[in-house]
Design a protein around this nucleic acid. Structure first.
Lengths: 155, 155
DNA sequence: CCATCACGTAACTTGATAAGTATCGTGATG
DNA sequence: CATCACGATACTTATCAAGTTACGTGATGG
């Protein structure tokens, strides 16, 4: 319980990207994805590398290259994506010493950490119970009742 | 959803301190508390200031001064302490843009944030359901079956 | 009265990490 | 072989709890 952390948006960014890729024909370049996210291609490649290692996407170089989804969207959960992008630390709060000598501190840390673990377990369960396909369908249900290729806007 | 954050140990540290104070006669100095936490008095004062503003403790200057509990431990929950020390951001993950123009991004952010909110609600509920007195009793039950003044060690 | 104690406060530094940036290399396309 | 797009490394930036330094103020007590 010692690491420092910032608000990590890799999960939501990646989901955003994947849904666009799902409704896009052909590979998408890091350049185009970066524009979508308001960032640059290097940041995109860094995050996408995790997805590639997990086998969820593939990348091709050269003309007409870019990123392509390589998995069944029904088989990949939000939790899988969370883990593929680094499975980052979830909480910004915690205890400072892992194994305190003080008995009071032990009890306090255990109480706080048990509570955090409970919340984390719920989060993990929820993320694990939603597939990318379901997320995509929930978008269609709300925004694209008839379905079409990707014409949805990105600022 | 934009702020950056580190692992924040103010809650667990403060609970640790309060339990010691509860089984300690007379005020405790920031100096002594700092030794307990492995930090220095200024850090202690900074955190304790929140508790003082909330009315949970009082502070006295000069000889024999220091910090004293001013609340009924049965009436103060872990959540109250969490809030008194700044109610810091709980999660290290989130979305980067609060109000995206892109409809896909909106749906994704909503899904992620709803899940986080659910986990946060559970955490808040749990923290709110435990009083300082109960936490102290759980320590006694485990470590001090007969109860006495504060002889518990702090490394 | 004055030395000491202990809190109050402000300003600055440190450490950790996601994000951002710059640069070069490599392989594929046409 | 020029261009494209990924791969990889190295460096900078932003953020915030925690740590540190320094000085002020009020209370105690000799």
């Amino acid at each position: 319980m010692d690491r420092r952390v910032r608000t990590d948006s890799r999960l939501s960014r990646t989901l955003h990207v994947l849904l666009h890729m799902a409704r896009h024909d052909g590979p998408m370049t890091s350049e185009a994805i970066g524009r979508m996210l308001g960032t640059n291609p290097v940041v995109v490649r860094r995050t996408m590398a995790g997805l590639r290692n997990a086998g969820y996407v593939t990348s091709e170089k050269g003309h007409g290259g870019g990123w392509t989804i390589a998995a069944d969207l029904n088989a990949v959960s939000l939790l899988d994506i969370h883990r593929a992008v680094g499975g980052p630390r979830i909480f910004a709060i915690g205890s400072d010493r892992a194994n305190p000598a003080c008995a009071v501190e032990k009890v306090v840390n255990a109480a706080v950490e048990d509570t955090l673990r409970e919340a984390e377990a719920l989060l993990i369960t929820r993320l694990g119970s939603v597939s990318l396909a379901e997320l995509a369908r929930s978008f269609d249900a709300r925004c694209r009742p008839e379905g079409a290729s990707d014409t949805s806007t990105c600022a």
